[in-house]
């Protein structure tokens, strides 16, 4: 059964310069205890999509519309703000990119952890403190009990991200959304944090939606991949299919542009030429066309739809040979 189903999500921001179309009708789904990697260049709408699922986009500037948004059999669009709140942090946990700024500098780690148990699990302050210590222990922070009284600035970046993860898994959520959880960390620490996520997932059987730039990570831990470009999904499918039978020139370019530990013989790295389109002024055709090596006249006619190109594999490119 699908745990999360999102259909036709559109997000536009009203800005000083006009309307920014950050997400343009994407579909996304996730099964229980599955790992979905969402990849794409900066500004492609990954974070916006993640925040939209949790209903965390700023109400004043973001216009969010979707045909369907279901989680664990519930229609999230029909929920009241209070019902959504009760779900956030309890059924869906979120880890943010920058552990330096996403923890509150003036509250102790213990406070920031124990309040979750108090709010969602009806714990008393004392029980919640014990629970918080257990959580720190679980994410591999030594002397957990003593560290509850410390403040975020007394932790290193990697340790802070562990705290961030502890907060996200406090209520054993069915889904963990991790928005580039390792981007801000040192390379050695990155591997440890990913290792931790994988362990926790195996232990708690939760689904993970992992937003990342790092295709090496994707190849290692993702079951399925969703490639975003300029607010649209341009390729999606099982990790195996997307990596070995890449359908979309953008995905191919992305694969060539980053070093990967699992495939050393791919030839020299090649950055993608040009830069992503301005979401304020999206053209009518394929939004990757201006940067594509294989561009043809028909690419400019309209945005190609996602087409099936294999079992559990879809790509949005005129060159893709559709299969039944």
């Amino acid at each position: 059964m699908q745990l999360l189903e999102l259909e036709g999500l559109h997000v536009a921001f009203s800005t000083d310069r006009g309307e920014a179309k950050a997400v343009n009708g994407i579909d996304l789904s996730l099964k229980e205890s599955e790992t979905l990697a969402v990849v794409g260049e900066s500004g492609s709408g990954k974070s916006v999509t993640a925040l939209a699922i949790l209903g965390l986009l700023p109400k004043r500037t973001a216009m969010v519309r979707a045909d369907a948004l279901r989680f664990d059999g519930r229609d999230l669009m029909a929920l009241s703000e209070e019902q959504l709140r009760a779900m956030r942090g309890k059924d869906i946990g979120m880890v943010f990119q920058d552990p330096m700024t996403s923890l509150n500098p003036v509250l102790t780690i213990g406070r920031q952890l124990s309040e979750i148990g108090e709010v969602h699990l009806g714990m008393t302050r004392a029980t919640a403190q014990d629970h918080a210590a257990d959580l720190l222990d679980q994410v591999g922070i030594p002397q957990a009990k003593a560290r509850l009284r410390d403040y975020p600035h007394q932790f290193s970046g990697g340790m802070r991200q562990r705290v961030g993860i502890a907060m996200a898994i406090a209520c054993k959520p069915k889904l963990l959304i991790a928005d580039e959880p390792t981007t801000a960390l040192d390379v050695t620490v990155q591997a440890q944090v990913l290792e931790l996520l994988a362990e926790l997932q195996a232990e708690m059987r939760m689904a993970i939606m992992l937003v990342t730039h790092d295709l090496g990570v994707v190849a290692r831990i993702a079951d399925r991949v969703l490639v975003m470009y300029a607010g649209s999904v341009v390729e999606t499918g099982s990790a195996e299919a997307v990596f070995s039978r890449t359908g979309m020139p953008y995905t191919r370019a992305l694969l060539r542009s980053v070093p990967r530990l699992d495939q050393a013989d791919e030839g020299p790295l090649r950055p993608i030429r040009g830069s992503p389109p301005d979401v304020m002024r999206l053209a009518k055709g394929c939004s990757f066309a201006p940067r594509c090596d294989l561009v043809e006249a028909r690419c400019h006619l309209g945005q190609p739809p996602l087409a099936r190109c294999g079992p559990d594999h879809q790509a949005a490119c005129v060159l893709v040979e559709p299969t039944a």
Partner: peptide, 17 residues
């Protein structure tokens, strides 16, 4: 607008808190 306020909302805390 700070990140930790977004974290607090993602944790599902009461608005008052």
């Amino acid at each position: 607008t700070e990140d930790y306020m977004r974290t607090a909302r993602a944790k599902g805390l009461f608005p008052r808190l």
